[in-house]
């Protein structure tokens, strides 16, 4: 059974998302909103990591190397220039989508296993992940015209 694999994947992806949100928040603290909202969204991912623990134990985590591959390209160095925020938000959006997809996959498995608790957890946590993605998309849409067209 590979459910443990996927739980490991979402676990790492959530950790990575939290860390990336904090980095981006700190890099762009001069924006009126980025620092606060990134802190808030990161705290949600932290909470998800905690809530995942009993299931990881139950399905004996088998760690996947997948998210590491993603992380190498993202957020190593603070990006500079007017496009930096846009690019960082873009990459955060990719990460949160990674998490969102993991929840869908795990939810399917939970239903097949009749693991009601895991189903409920998937539902609750994926709802918050969607809110993370939705904020990123809103902010990306707001930034895009100014960064791509007007800024030097």
């Amino acid at each position: 059974m590979h459910l443990g694999n996927y739980l490991g994947l979402v676990h790492e992806s959530e950790q990575e998302l939290a860390e990336a949100l904090r980095k981006v928040g700190a890099h762009h603290a001069d924006e009126p909103d980025i620092f606060q909202i990134c802190q808030l969204l990161a705290s949600w991912s932290d909470q998800h990591v905690q809530q995942l623990k009993p299931f990881i134990k139950k399905y004996s985590e088998d760690r996947s190397s997948e998210p590491d591959k993603l992380s190498r390209t993202l957020f190593d160095e603070p990006r500079k220039g007017s496009l930096a925020l846009m690019r960082d938000l873009h990459d955060l959006w990719l990460l949160s989508n990674e998490v969102e997809l993991c929840w869908i996959v795990i939810y399917q498995a939970a239903m097949a296993l009749h693991d009601k608790e895991l189903e409920a957890t998937c539902n609750e946590l994926s709802g918050q992940t969607k809110r993370q993605t939705a904020w990123l998309l809103t902010r990306i849409k707001q930034s895009a015209p100014q960064s791509l067209i007007v800024a030097a």
């Binding site: 909103d33 969204l41 809110r131 993370q132 998309l137 809103t138």
Partner: peptide
């Protein structure tokens, strides 16, 4: 909007 984040519906 999401009242915690401001994300647009």
């Amino acid at each position: 909007q999401d009242l915690s984040t401001g994300a647009a519906k």
